[in-house]
Design a protein around this nucleic acid. Structure first.
Lengths: 244, 244
DNA sequence: CGGAGCGTTGAAAGCCCTCAACGTTTGTGG
DNA sequence: CCACAAACGTTGAGGGCTTTCAACGCTCCG
């Protein structure tokens, strides 16, 4: 089984030729296991490898003066966590794990070769970094324009659709080992208020989150509350994604 | 005079060879003039050209149900407004002008050729889209973790440093033809509260904004208030020298 | 010169935060 | 298997920041 099988899965992986999948797989230098709640990269450090997340949940974040931190991205299975470090050479944020994680390490020197020898694959690598940017934009919208309940609704649906694309959502539920504090750091809220809003969603019959499992109980009303439209995820529609 | 002279100016343009500058200049199909307050591209539309902003201020934004909009990016001289539309093929947000603008149109077919023939230039184009992503991340931080005065301070400094990089800030002042409503749409605030916070910055002797001109009167205190560090702008000189 | 858009200011209401206490779950060592 | 501690989750009360609503002044331009 290829370790890169979930890269762009459900989001344009079908645009890769078999040869390109082989090239990408061959670019992996090694696999690493990371414990939960570990800082992986600090902002400003020069980076020479990029990291493909195979399993687990990681995040990118920035610290505020008051000790709180703001998540700027949540990385799930199949995501390149820091491919943007290839053109940028250093990162403007920290990277860490939230759960235990398994990652594939890809040296930048091998991406150099891809740019020269495989321009079409290079364009898809570029594209994958821009899917992250589209997520960033939606996060700006979510924090800037939605109230607390709307932000939570939007975030849960975003995560649900992303996980479904890589086959990690089972029906209307998915495993999600984040704390209410984590949710608050992603949404610009306190954990106390996240707790209250989760209760509101639960009592409204829209979504439940307990013991590391999220269940979407009324997708339509949740989407209306969070003004959620999965357009920005650039998901493939109608195609079934086999494991290759 | 090259129309692409401000592309990556102050932010890595020196990494371009003369030949690459020529290639980029040659990729321009035509120049267009746009009036102020015009919608240029609507979300979802397929895009086949990319737009380099030569002069003026443009923005990217998303509409909320309540009629308000959230800016997700502000584009200044030298910015590619929608280069991400090249790998993505369609946009997940609207694009519009705030002031009159002059733009260069670059067909995607010509970028295809750059990817094949000029991998190093391709990497710098990729990089320029990731500089936008770094701005997105900082916007998430700003809206998610700073109070209203901090957001405003941070935003004014960000704009000041970006304009300085392309030679469009004169000492501690720069022309900035936005309304307080525009600022609110960028910062997730109402125009009324923007007004109050501008007064606070003015009375605190930190910054002034009147008649389309911003003046930074105490860079250090403003930076402290906005927790601003220009690191994420990836400016070439690394300097954020005050001119006072 | 009149109107529309923008800017300014005040008062009141609402959303979210802070602080605090307590209950629940998880993990660890005896 | 139990005891215990630490982390996480839950709930209430009060306060603060921002919004809402409203009114009015200013500027610019047709």
């Amino acid at each position: 089984m290829r370790v890169t099988k979930d890269f762009l899965r459900g989001r344009g992986r079908n645009g890769l030729t078999q040869a390109e999948k082989d090239v990408l797989e061959g670019a992996v230098e090694r696999i690493e296991h990371l414990p939960a709640r570990r800082i992986v990269t600090r902002r400003g450090e020069p980076v020479t490898n990029s990291t493909l997340l195979l399993d687990g949940v990681m995040c990118r974040y920035m610290d505020a003066r008051d000790g709180f931190r703001q998540l700027v991205a949540l990385q799930l299975t199949g995501d390149f966590v820091d491919l943007h470090g290839y053109p940028l050479r250093r990162l403007d944020h920290d990277v860490g794990t939230l759960t235990e994680a398994r990652v594939a390490i890809i040296p930048h020197a091998r991406i150099d070769k891809i740019l020269i020898d495989h321009p079409h694959l290079a364009r898809l690598l570029w594209r994958s970094t821009l899917l992250d940017a589209a997520l960033h934009r939606e996060w700006i919208f979510r924090i800037g324009r939605l109230d607390a309940a709307g932000r939570l609704a939007h975030f849960l649906l975003e995560t649900y659709h992303r996980l479904r694309a890589v086959g990690a959502a089972d029906g209307n539920a998915f495993d999600f080992a984040l704390t209410q504090q984590d949710l608050g750091e992603a949404l610009g809220l306190t954990s106390v208020h996240v707790n209250r809003m989760l209760r509101r969603l639960r009592e409204g019959g829209m979504a439940e989150f307990a013991r590391g499992v999220v269940r979407i109980t009324d997708h339509d009303r949740l989407a209306r509350l969070g003004e959620f439209d999965p357009d920005y995820l650039y998901l493939e529609t109608g195609t079934w994604n086999r494991d290759d």
